[in-house]
Design a protein around this nucleic acid. Structure first.
Length: 420
RNA sequence: GGGGGAAUGUCCCGAGCGGCAAAGGGGGCGGACUGUAAAUCCGCUGGCUUAGCCUUCGCAGGUUCGAGUCCUGCUUCCCCCA
């Protein structure tokens, strides 16, 4: 791995120091390009959902660092490859998405890149690309003759993503089998279009990336490079970015800013240093100081992590706002009007809504049944008072001076209900 | 083409003599303890207008007072033989 290599370029030095690197096809080669300010790199993002989630954040950060150190980042939208479906790291076939879904997803995903990268026509400006542009126009016979002849099926069969399916005797359809060919072709095409010489990605993409490098050599692109980031799990081994209520989305319409801030604030102690390095741009000596805070002091580091990570995505103002809301809620126990708020028609409220349906409406529980169970377990609170009677109804007297009702599940999840 | 297996609580794995809202895990949620952490312990983990009612065991029928469990057909997956 990278332990013995001493990078001369800022780009690799930072990536190495902060722990972004898992494997690289040729450290010296990438280093030289970066050092010379000629590094143009891409990372592909499949449009499988209407927002990216935290799992992609590491990749986005690599593009950001590339830009900051004088390289040119090209985020590639997988408008074409998503129509095929990547079998990597999957033990069963993905459902195929409809073209409409993919289009909708692309618009959702695009938003996030503008937060992390500067786009434009300048030398280090980012450019948004989409492989649908060339992949959907491919002619099957031409593709087979020009590109397909360079692929060795023998070799493809030995790739991890394929072997896993074969070993476990799970279906691998032909369309999925083609995914890696298309991704390889992307690399070559992007080299032609933008002079890209480096593809980055998660460690599960290694096989696909290496195939692209290989294809490039056979099709005369000159030397291409690959670099992958480690697969991120939390210290307790869980995959990152999943919570009970779903993934930790990057788009604010999918996950409120406050909840995003809270996700980082609730990081396990053991992960704080690693996450500060990967998901903030704080200087390393500051990170060393923060991660060595002992005992309860480490909460300061977690707040810093939450502030910085949130500011990068949602802006400094949004982060401050979330931090302030959290401070009021947790440290002062005061009701903050900035908590996620659900509005409901005054008529519903006036007619004496039951506590059960109030919690359901607030989205804190999935059903009245769950609300009942939580009440039995003492998990629900109304204006900070534990709810004991599931038959209770809300009335005007439950409204605080701000004209809202505060509903909580557990100690961390709070929602305001506001009659309008 | 022939023979043999499998599909279970829509998060996952997985038991299930004809009386079953269905054992047990994992995961998740809540409670206690803490520092909005981890570990540990406890509870919960189909829906509803909850002394009751309704819907669940691949799909469709059948036998039965009663079917996840038995029978028939179908779908999908796996194994063996050709």
């Amino acid at each position: 791995m990278s332990t013995d290599f001493q990078p001369k370029s800022d780009f690799l030095a930072i990536l190495k120091e902060r722990g972004y690197i898992h494997q690289c096809s040729d450290f010296a080669g990438v280093d030289d390009k970066a050092k010379a300010g000629e590094l143009i790199a891409y990372i592909g993002f499949d449009a499988t959902a209407s927002s990216l989630h935290i799992g992609s954040l590491l990749q986005i950060m690599m593009l950001r660092w590339l830009q900051k150190t004088g390289g040119k980042p090209i985020p590639l939208m997988g408008g074409g490859t998503t129509q095929v479906g990547d079998p990597s790291g999957r033990d069963e076939s993905r459902k195929l998405l409809t073209l409409d879904q993919i289009e909708a997803n692309k618009t959702g995903i695009r938003q996030v890149f503008t937060k992390f990268l500067t786009f434009g026509d300048g030398k280090t400006d980012a450019v948004m690309s989409d492989n649908a542009e060339w992949l959907t126009a491919l002619n099957y016979i031409h593709f087979l003759r020009d590109v397909g002849r360079h692929f060795s099926v023998n070799r493809m069969l030995s790739m991890d993503s394929v072997k896993m399916r074969l070993d476990r005797e799970q279906e691998l359809s032909f369309i999925e089998f083609n995914y890696m060919c298309l991704q390889s072709y992307d690399f070559v095409e992007l080299n032609k279009r933008y002079g890209i010489t480096l593809q980055m990605g998660g460690s599960d993409q290694w096989g696909n990336i290496v195939m692209g490098i290989d294809l490039g050599r056979r099709m005369g692109t000159g030397q291409l490079y690959g670099l992958t980031s480690p697969l991120l799990t939390t210290a307790s081994g869980a995959k990152m970015g999943k919570t009970a209520s779903g993934a930790v989305w990057l788009n604010s319409d999918m996950l409120p800013v406050y909840d995003y801030w809270q996700y980082w604030r609730n990081t396990e102690d053991a992960d704080v240093g690693r996450f500060l390095r990967l998901f903030t741009e704080l200087p390393m000596d500051e990170i060393h100081r923060l991660e060595n805070l002992g005992g309860a002091e480490i909460n300061e580091a977690k707040k810093m992590l939450a502030n910085e990570a949130t500011a990068m995505l949602h802006g400094r103002e949004g982060a401050d706002h979330a931090a302030e809301t959290a401070r009021k809620t947790f440290e002062e126990g005061v009701l903050s009007i900035a908590l996620p708020t659900i509005e409901l028609p005054l008529a519903d409220y006036a007619s004496g809504m039951g506590v059960l349906s109030a919690f359901v409406k607030a989205g804190l529980v999935a059903s009245t049944g769950e609300a009942r169970r939580q009440i039995k377990g003492g998990g629900l609170r109304l204006n900070d008072a534990v709810v004991t009677d599931e038959r209770a109804t809300l009335s005007a007297s439950d409204l605080t001076s701000e004209g809202v009702v505060k509903l909580s599940m557990g100690k961390k999840k709070h929602v305001l209900l506001k009659p309008v």
